[in-house]
């Protein structure tokens, strides 16, 4: 895959490492969660067949994390965007 780092531009996939689903935020106060709720945060992630907002880190260059929307059926990347921004497409 060719991944467009929002900071560096398009680079080969081997320069990146993967971080799974994007936009999963750490709970405000884990101590108030039930075990089940905490397990959801720890272990449960979306796994859609189709477009997926996910995290990547440009480990071999700028070392920045960013997000991508990619189709898991085709590997086609529809958009990449910076951490903290919301997905430009869904």
């Amino acid at each position: 895959m060719l991944i467009e780092c929002p900071w560096c531009g398009p680079r080969d996939e081997t320069e990146f490492h993967y971080g799974g689903q994007a936009h999963v935020s750490y709970p405000d106060d884990p101590s108030v969660l039930t075990d089940e709720q905490w397990a959801r945060y720890l272990f449960y992630r979306d796994n859609p067949q189709g477009r997926f907002a996910e995290r990547w880190c440009h480990g071999s260059a700028c070392r920045r994390w960013f997000n991508a929307v990619r189709d898991t059926r085709t590997h086609q990347i529809v958009a990449t965007y910076r951490t903290g921004e919301s997905a430009p497409v869904t």
Partner: peptide
């Protein structure tokens, strides 16, 4: 391969 996929293929590397 590191990423999620349903494509039944991966990278050459």
């Amino acid at each position: 391969d590191q990423y999620n996929s349903y494509a039944q293929r991966g990278g050459l590397h």
